[in-house]
Nucleic acid binder design. Sequence first.
DNA 1: ATGGTCGGTCCCCGA
Length: 262
Amino acid sequence: MLSVVSWNVNSIKARLLNVCEWLREESPDVVCLQEIKCIDENFPRLEIEDLGYNVETVGQKSYNGVAILSKRPIEEIAHRALPGDEEDGQARYIEAVISADSGPVRIASIYLPNGNPAPGPKYEYKLAWWDRLNAHAQNLLSFEEAVILAGDYNLIPTDDDVHDPAKWDGDALTLPASRERYYALLWQGYRSAFDERDGRAHQYTFWDYQAGAWPKNHGIRIDHLMCSPKAIDALEEVTIAKDTRAKDKASDHVPIVGVFDL
DNA sequence: ATGGTCGGTCCCCGA
């Protein structure tokens, strides 16, 4: 069995105690972090390694930043940036090949641009990033491996994935041009682990810090485990670790956990 | 009740 997690921690330094507590309790095999918000040198590597993880980071100052933590050996880091634009300096992509019992599993930690306000240059960047991601994802399928593209996609797939669709009308997280990119990834053959399960409506992974969103359950589902056919065939279960949102000093995102027979 | 939040950095930006 291989458990794979995506968790936007909104600063690893601010979240270190919460993250370490959860890792000790749940002991997941692979954890893809987003928004670590620090340069590689400042990542609290020793504290995470002490819990039994290999650590690979792609950080930057103040913003963004992704990491992969793995109890299994990391065979290689295939990419430290999303291919397709040498000019893109934002730390939003890392891709590793992990040694699982069944063989190699390719796992990426993805922090897709938010894109607001839309329209505008930030939205253009989001769509361009999506297009690069889909082009790369298509290439990965040719390896016929188990591939899990885990991350904060800043995308609400359907109106069932938000407490009040009208409030999100026109937002970069729901605009048709954004959702078209998500559908394009599905069309290639990728599947969202969570969407393969029953009872998926109104299950959220993010609740804003503002306006009492958490106590009112005004959430959105934007963190996804996108799986290649081999990975989705091996999917055993998927859970959203909602209880982490109720903790003191919580991230505004919670972990989404997939368990695979890999 | 017509507001309300964080985190990082530096005096505002991003989410």
